[in-house]
C-alpha cells in the first residue's frame, strides 16, 4: 500500500464490502473467478457460464487460463473517506490472518477471534486541515503531553 497514511480498523461487524474482496486471476490478468456475497448470489445463480468453487466463490470456466492462476485481494473502495474529508486515492483490504495477529501484538491488543481487521490507506489532499475544530491538532496534543511529562 503505497499511500501517505494507513489506518488499521479492528471491528466486530462492518458494512458489507462494495465489491469482491478476492478474485482469481489468470497469468494474463483476466478474472477467472470471484467472491460472491449472499446479496449478489442471485446474479450468478441464473448464469450457465459459472461453476461454484465454494459456497461464496464462482469460477468462469469459459475464460481460458493462460500462464497459471493466482488469488488477488484487490483494493476495495472505502467511500467513507473521500476528498470532502481530505483523503485521496482511498483503498482498503483485509490483511492475512497472520498479519492481523502481528498488528494486534504490535498494538498490544488481546487476541479476540470475534474481531477482524481492515486496513485503509490514502493520500492526503494538499493543504486540507484535517484537525478537528476545538480539539487541537494531534501535533499540538503531543507537544502538550511532552510538556506535561517534563513538568512532572
Amino acid at each position: 500500500m503505497k499511500r501517505e497514511a494507513v489506518i488499521c480498523i479492528i471491528k466486530s461487524h462492518f458494512r458489507p464490502p462494495p465489491e469482491p474482496t478476492v478474485v482469481l486471476m489468470s497469468g494474463e490478468c483476466k478474472i477467472i473467478g470471484e467472491e460472491v456475497f449472499p446479496w449478489t448470489r442471485k446474479d450468478y445463480e441464473a448464469r450457465d457460464d459459472v461453476v461454484w468453487m465454494f459456497d461464496g466463490f464462482v469460477l468462469f470456466p469459459k475464460i481460458p487460463v493462460i500462464g497459471g492462476e493466482h488469488f488477488v485481494m484487490p483494493p476495495v473502495s472505502f467511500p467513507e473517506l473521500n476528498e470532502s474529508n481530505g483523503c485521496l486515492d482511498v483503498v482498503s483490504c483485509s490483511p492475512a490472518p497472520s498479519c492481523d495477529a502481528m498488528i494486534r501484538e504490535y498494538a498490544g491488543l488481546p487476541v479476540d477471534t470475534k474481531l477482524a481487521s481492515i486496513i485503509v490507506a490514502f493520500n492526503r489532499v494538499k493543504g486540507f486541515d484535517a484537525s478537528i475544530p476545538g480539539e487541537g491538532s494531534v501535533k499540538e496534543h503531543s507537544l502538550a503531553r511532552s510538556h506535561l511529562r517534563r513538568l512532572s
Partner: peptide, 15 residues
C-alpha cells in the same frame, strides 16, 4: 484527525 475520527465513528469499529 478527521479521517481517523470518521473511521472510529463507524458502526462495529472497536479500535
Amino acid at each position: 484527525d478527521l479521517p481517523l475520527s470518521i473511521v472510529r465513528g463507524l458502526s462495529g469499529v472497536h479500535y
